[in-house]
Design a binder for these strands. Structure first.
Lengths: 351, 351
DNA sequence: CTGTTAGCGCCTTCAC
DNA sequence: GTGAAGGCGCTAACAG
C-alpha cells in the first residue's frame, strides 16, 4: 500500500540518470501507538504496561503476556524522547574528534562504538575541526543533556567545563576531575629516539603537531628533547599547531628546515607518511639515509610497503579504559584520574 | 568549588601509574534551571521565554533582553528531550556503516557529518558489522524516533522498512521509495577493465565482495563479466560475501585460485591493497607482470607508494546528494529515487 | 504583544 | 498485583 506517488523522468547535466518521485506524506503524523493504546487494548492501566516494559515491579504472568501481545499487535515501540525526559538519560555518548577521516580516530571510534554499544549507549559523532563555533558549541551539547557523557579527542580549550560533567579525554588535560586516558608517550618516545641513535643516526629530528591545550602528547617532544640534551645532540624539532589535513605542507616545511636529518620520530601516521613521501621524492633513501619512526602505528594495517617502524598505541586497551572510566563517572562511581596504557614498538622497514 | 574528593595512590599490574579519585555526586540531580525559572526571574510568562528562545512570534525588545539576561544568569540551557517530545524531532541522523575503521566509510562519514551539521543535524554512528542483532535493532531505532532520518551503508536485508521512513542508502536498494545514491559503477568498471586490456593484459580478473542485498555494487562485476563475454575472454572473478576486516585471507584465496592473472579490478581500496601485498610478497612485479586497479580510490590520499590506479568515487558529491535527498524526504519534499554520481579514473603506478 | 493552559509519552509514587 | 494521577520541560494554541 504505497502512498500517493508521482514518478517522472528527470534530466540534468549534473546527474547521469534520475527518476523523480513526488512523495505524499500520509495522514498528518503520529498514528504511532503509545503506551496508552497498549493499555487499552490489553485492558490494563498504563502503569502496568510500563512495568512489563521495564520489567520493574510485580506483574502477573497472564497480564504480562496480554500486554506483550497488545504491544506486538500495535507495533508499539517506546518513545525515546519521552523516556529521556522522565529519566534524564539519553543513552547517548558524544565522541568529539577533530576529524573522523584519520586512521587513528576512525580506528579508536570503531573500538569505542563497539564497547559503548555493549553498555547500552549509542555514539554521537562530532567532528569539530572545520569550525570554531562548532568546537565551542560542543560544551552546550553536554550541558543540554543531549547526551549522558562525552569523550574528547579535540584540542580546543574550554574554560567552563564543570568537573561534574561525565567527560573523559584522550591525552588532554581538561581539568582535575576529568579522567584522562593516554599512552605512555614519554617512555615510548624516549625509547624510540634512543633506538634511532643506536641504529647509528647522528642527526635526529622530531616532527609533530602541538595541541592547543595541555596534553600528554607534548611528552613526546619532551622525551625527544631530553634525549638530545642528555647526549648533547643538536635539536631538530618542529611542533606547531597544525590542522589535520595539512600534513603535507607541514611535512614539507620540516623537510625544508632540516634537510639533513638521518633519523626522525614523527608524531602521527599521516604526518609520518607525508614526511616519508616528501623525503623519498626528494631523493632520500629510506632507511639507508633516513630512518623514520611513526607514532600511532594504526594506519599501517592498511599499508603494504614500506611497513613502518612505529610506536603502536594499544587502541583496544585505550578504548576499554575510556569506556570504563566514562561509565564509572556517569554512574557516580569512583574513577581513575589518569590512566596510562603502554604502547608497543613495532619494527618495520623504515629503520 | 570542587565537590568532595578523595585522592589516593593506586597501583595495579595493568596500569603504569594511577591516581584514584572518589567523586561525590552533588545534591541529587536537576538543579538545572528550566524555562519556568527563567520566566520567573525575568518576570514574564513561560510562553514569552519560549518565544524568544525560538525567535518565533512577537516579543518586545526590552523583554527579549530581560529574558536573555535571565537565561544567562541562570545558565539556562534548553532541555533537548523535552523539546523533542513536543516537536517530535530529534535532529539526529543515524549513520549505519559496517565499520568506521575503513578508509571509504570514514571519509564519507566526515563529509556527511560536516554537511548534516550545516543542516542542524547531529550524527549518530552505528557500526553494525560485529553483531547480527545490532543490524536488526537498527530499524527499531528508526521506529523509536530516536532519529529523524538515517543513512544506510550496510548490507543487511530488512523486510519491514516502511517507505515512509526518511532513509537514504548508498548503493543499496532497500525499497522503491528509499532514495539510493550511487556511483556510476557499471560505466566506470567497464572502462577500467577495458583500460587493463588496452594496456596489454590477457588474463584479466575481478575481485570483490558481494553485498547481502540488491546493490549497485554488483554492477562492477557485471561490467567486468560483460567485457569478458564480449571479447570471449576467460572469467577470473571472485565475488563472495566477505566481512570488512577479512580482506587479507580473501585476497589470498583469490590469489590461490587465479595465480595467473596479469590485470585485475579490485573492488575496495583495502582489498586492493591486500591483494597487492599478497601478490608482491609472492614475487609478482607490479605493474610489469600484474596491473591492479582499485575501486574507491579514497585511501590513497594517505598512500605514499605505490600510487594506485583507481576508480575514484566522488565523495563530496555523493555526500551532498545523500544529505540533499535525506533532508528532502524528511521534510516531505520531492526527492530523487536514484542518483548516480560520476567517478573519475585516476592513473597511478599500479598499471 | 504577552500570560495561561493543555498536552507530548512515559515513569513512579500512592492508594486500592 | 494493579489503576489512577502527577509531573518531567517544553511548545503551541488561545485568550487577553
Amino acid at each position: 500500500m504505497p502512498p500517493h506517488v508521482i514518478k517522472y523522468l528527470y534530466k540534468s547535466g549534473k546527474y547521469l540518470s534520475c527518476i523523480y518521485i513526488q512523495f505524499k506524506q500520509q495522514g498528518e503524523n503520529n498514528n504511532m501507538a503509545g503506551i496508552k493504546d497498549v493499555a487499552k487494548l490489553a485492558g490494563v492501566g498504563v502503569g502496568t504496561v510500563s512495568r512489563v516494559l521495564n520489567k520493574s515491579g510485580y506483574v502477573s504472568q497472564p497480564v504480562i503476556e496480554r500486554v506483550n501481545q497488545a504491544m506486538k499487535e500495535l507495533k508499539y515501540t517506546p518513545n525515546f524522547s519521552a523516556r529521556s525526559l522522565k529519566t534524564q538519560k539519553t543513552n547517548l555518548i558524544g565522541l568529539f574528534v577533530p576529524t573522523i577521516y584519520h586512521p587513528f580516530f576512525c580506528a579508536i571510534a570503531q573500538q569505542l562504538e563497539s564497547l559503548l554499544d555493549k553498555e547500552g549507549y549509542k555514539l554521537m559523532l562530532v567532528c569539530s575541526q572545520d569550525s570554531v563555533e562548532k568546537e565551542n558549541s560542543v560544551i552546550s551539547l553536554v550541558a543540554q543533556n543531549r547526551m549522558d557523557g562525552a569523550v574528547f579527542f579535540t584540542h580546543q580549550k574550554h574554560d567552563d567545563i564543570s568537573p561534574e560533567y561525565p567527560i573523559v579525554t584522550m591525552d588532554r588535560h581538561l581539568g582535575e576531575h576529568i579522567p584522562c586516558i593516554t599512552s605512555d608517550n614519554y617512555k615510548s618516545s624516549y625509547s624510540a629516539v634512543e633506538y634511532l641513535i643506536s641504529r647509528g643516526c647522528k642527526k635526529v629530528g622530531y616532527l609533530g603537531g602541538r595541541p592547543g591545550v595541555e596534553s600528554e602528547v607534548t611528552y613526546r617532544v619532551k622525551a625527544y628533547l631530553d634525549v638530545m640534551h642528555s647526549r648533547g645532540m643538536e635539536e631538530r624539532a618542529l611542533f606547531e599547531e597544525v590542522a589535520h589535513g595539512d600534513e603535507k605542507s607541514y611535512a614539507q616545511k620540516y623537510f625544508d628546515m632540516y634537510g639533513d636529518v638521518d633519523g626522525i620520530l614523527v608524531s602521527g601516521d599521516l604526518l609520518a607518511l607525508s614526511y616519508y613521501t616528501t623525503a623519498v621524492n626528494a631523493g632520500r633513501k629510506v632507511p639507508e639515509d633516513l630512518k623514520i619512526i611513526s607514532y600511532d602505528g594504526v594506519l599501517f594495517d592498511w599499508q603494504p610497503k614500506p611497513t613502518f617502524t612505529s610506536v603502536k598505541q594499544n587502541l583496544e586497551e585505550l578504548a576499554k579504559a575510556i569506556v570504563e572510566q566514562l561509565v564509572n563517572k556517569i554512574n557516580g562511581r569512583p574513577f581513575e584520574q589518569k590512566i596510562i596504557i603502554p604502547s608497543s614498538f613495532v619494527l618495520g622497514e623504515t629503520t
